[in-house]
């Protein structure tokens, strides 16, 4: 099976869906002539022309809203945010319009749109360009929120997201574009709302998405050397959330550590913790642990940036607390 990058996987997903459906188009800053700020849209302009690969001026609220309007009348836009940090100036279009039009119109209009782009802390780009915003979007009924961790998941989930009739907030890991994974050549789709066990284990359940899946897999390797088998559960989509998958894993292991790169206060991990205690309280042998970034805007200095974010050793320490080994 070919091994390709997360970036190539996303690119393939868009090419395949644009080949398949002439109503799909992509719009965003630098997606065409520049070939994508992160090169995710490389080659699309040459293949699909300016009609379907639309470079925009710097006007996120404008082009996000154009996407919503076009989707209402039947097109299937992919709106690329150069990074999700810039989605904040378009959030009215996502929250007030895209998420609500199906409800406000009594089911007469729906909004088949994908808002996608890199998200999560990057490397030394300062607080405005380095933050995890998934908890904002996961809060909103009417949206779906997808956070793939691997190239395989990224491709299968993006293809499904493009075909979905609802607005999908598709948050790619900014530091994951170069990561590789086995991706089949034959077409496949992955359902939204179905998680994936990234590593099986019996002693503790680690719940993580996007970049933190990789941190958890690294931590699990170290823990395995000490005889601790961690199960890594990747929900892949935060809304809808595959609660049964997480709950079943916790019922098996009796311990749960939730790892997210976002801030702790009102972070998505708190919702996961609530669901786990609600559905698996009698199976828990220890309090649920959360590992998050520090509750601060991201500093610039490299050492501080590392200190702020969850690292492998932080995950290991939390696992040991959950196992009463610390």
């Amino acid at each position: 099976m070919p091994v390709i990058s997360y970036r190539e996987a996303l690119n393939q997903a868009m090419v395949e869906e644009m080949d398949r459906d002439p109503d799909v188009f992509i719009m965003g800053e630098e997606v065409g002539h520049y070939q994508g700020a992160y090169k995710v849209t490389q080659g699309l302009l040459q293949r699909f022309s300016e009609r379907r690969v639309v470079d925009t001026p710097i006007a996120e609220m404008g082009f996000a809203g154009i996407g919503v309007g076009a989707a209402m009348v039947g097109l299937r836009p992919i709106i690329e945010f150069m990074t999700f940090n810039f989605s904040l100036v378009a959030i009215d279009q996502i929250v007030s319009n895209a998420a609500k039009i199906y409800q406000m119109s009594g089911g007469q209009f729906w909004v088949p749109i994908v808002f996608r782009g890199p998200s999560g802390p990057a490397v030394q780009v300062g607080s405005q360009h380095s933050q995890a915003l998934e908890s904002f979007y996961a809060h909103v009924p009417g949206l779906k929120v997808v956070m793939p961790s691997t190239a395989y998941d990224a491709k299968g989930l993006l293809k499904t997201a493009i075909r979905d009739d609802n607005p999908v907030v598709f948050m790619e890991g900014e530091t994951l574009y170069g990561t590789t994974w086995e991706v089949p050549e034959d077409e496949y789709l992955l359902p939204l709302g179905k998680g994936d066990i990234k590593r099986e284990g019996s002693h503790v359940t680690l719940v993580a998405w996007s970049k933190m899946v990789w941190t958890c897999l690294d931590a699990a390797k170290v823990l395995a050397e000490e005889g601790i088998e961690a199960e890594v559960v990747d929900p892949r989509t935060l809304r809808p959330l595959d609660t049964p998958l997480i709950v079943e894993s916790v019922k098996k292991t009796g311990r749960c550590v939730i790892v997210e790169v976002g801030w702790p206060h009102a972070g998505f991990g708190a919702e996961v913790a609530y669901q786990v205690q609600q559905h698996a309280l009698d199976f828990l042998d220890a309090p649920i642990e959360r590992v998050c970034s520090d509750d601060v805007p991201m500093p610039y200095a490299k050492n501080l940036e590392i200190e702020v974010q969850p690292q492998v050793e932080d995950v290991i320490a939390a696992v040991k607390r959950a196992l009463y080994l610390a």
């Binding site: 609220m61 154009i66 919503v68 309007g69 076009a70 009215d92 279009q93 007030s96 319009n97 209009f109």
Partner: peptide, 17 residues
């Protein structure tokens, strides 16, 4: 196509249609 409650937020929607 609506009936929009956020002032000006519907202008991009119209441009989108």
């Amino acid at each position: 196509l609506g009936g929009h409650g956020i002032v000006g937020g519907h202008v991009p929607i119209a441009a989108g249609a």
